[in-house]
Amino acid sequence: MLYCQSCDTDNDTSAHKCRECGCPYLIPYKSVLVRSDGKRVGIKSGFCWPAAIFGWMWTAYHRAWRLSLILAVTAFGLLALDHLFFSNTQNPLWSLLTIGAYASYMFICGKNGYALLEKDLQRVDYTALIKPQANVL
């Protein structure tokens, strides 16, 4: 599905410009969620680099508060474990373990970022946009 942010119109995946307003800037979305006041949010698919780099701050920006809290506790928990247990050791294995834990956290956030955001927004006030189907006789 290609979505036009100018006029809130869904377009076919083969479209080169919006069928309503003619805007050439169409954005591919996996799904579109709509809030009760009519605000729409497009959920993309694939790896999410902002979620991988910024983690809990990215989810806070998107107002997914529950997910943001879970990711923040995880990130600060990793930081606390690193400081409490591994900061005074001279063993390079502990440093590799810490780097591996942070890299895993970033990979999980990036790989599942859009899916987790969609689930968290659906828990609050957003619902999936359902298109009415034509009656076939």
Rank of each mutant, 00 (worst) to 15 (best):
L2Q: 13
Y3D: 02
C4P: 03
Q5G: 12
S6H: 12
S6C: 04
C7V: 08
C7P: 04
D8H: 14
D10L: 13
D12A: 13
T13D: 13
T13M: 06
S14N: 10
A15G: 04
A15W: 02
A15E: 08
H16N: 11
H16Q: 10
K17P: 00
K17F: 11
C23M: 03
Y25D: 13
L26Q: 04
L26E: 03
I27V: 15
P28D: 05
P28N: 02
Y29Q: 13
V32N: 02
V34R: 01
S36L: 06
S36A: 11
D37N: 15
G38E: 05
K39D: 13
R40C: 06
V41C: 00
V41E: 10
I43C: 07
I43T: 06
K44Y: 02
K44H: 09
F47N: 04
W49V: 07
A51N: 02
I53K: 05
F54I: 01
M57K: 01
W58F: 15
T59R: 00
A60Q: 05
H62M: 07
R63D: 13
A64P: 09
A64Q: 10
A64Y: 12
W65C: 02
W65G: 02
R66F: 15
R66C: 09
L67P: 00
S68Q: 03
S68D: 06
L69K: 05
L69G: 14
L71I: 13
L71E: 09
L71D: 06
L71S: 08
L71H: 08
T74C: 11
A75E: 08
A75T: 08
G77A: 05
L78C: 05
L78H: 08
L79E: 13
L79Q: 14
A80Q: 10
F85L: 14
F85N: 03
F86V: 04
F86S: 01
S87K: 12
N88T: 09
N88Y: 12
N88F: 12
N88P: 00
N88W: 10
T89R: 08
N91A: 12
W94C: 08
S95F: 15
S95D: 15
L96C: 15
L97M: 14
L97Y: 13
L97W: 10
T98Q: 14
I99K: 11
G100Y: 07
A101R: 03
A101I: 06
Y102C: 04
Y102P: 01
A103M: 08
S104L: 15
Y105T: 02
M106N: 06
M106K: 01
F107Q: 08
C109G: 03
K111A: 15
K111P: 05
K111I: 11
K111D: 09
N112M: 14
G113W: 03
G113A: 03
Y114N: 14
A115I: 09
A115D: 15
L116F: 15
L116E: 05
L117R: 11
L117Y: 10
E118S: 09
D120G: 00
L121D: 04
L121E: 06
R123V: 01
D125E: 11
T127M: 03
T127S: 11
A128C: 03
A128E: 12
A128I: 06
L129F: 03
L129Q: 05
I130R: 08
I130P: 02
P132T: 07
A134L: 14
L137R: 10
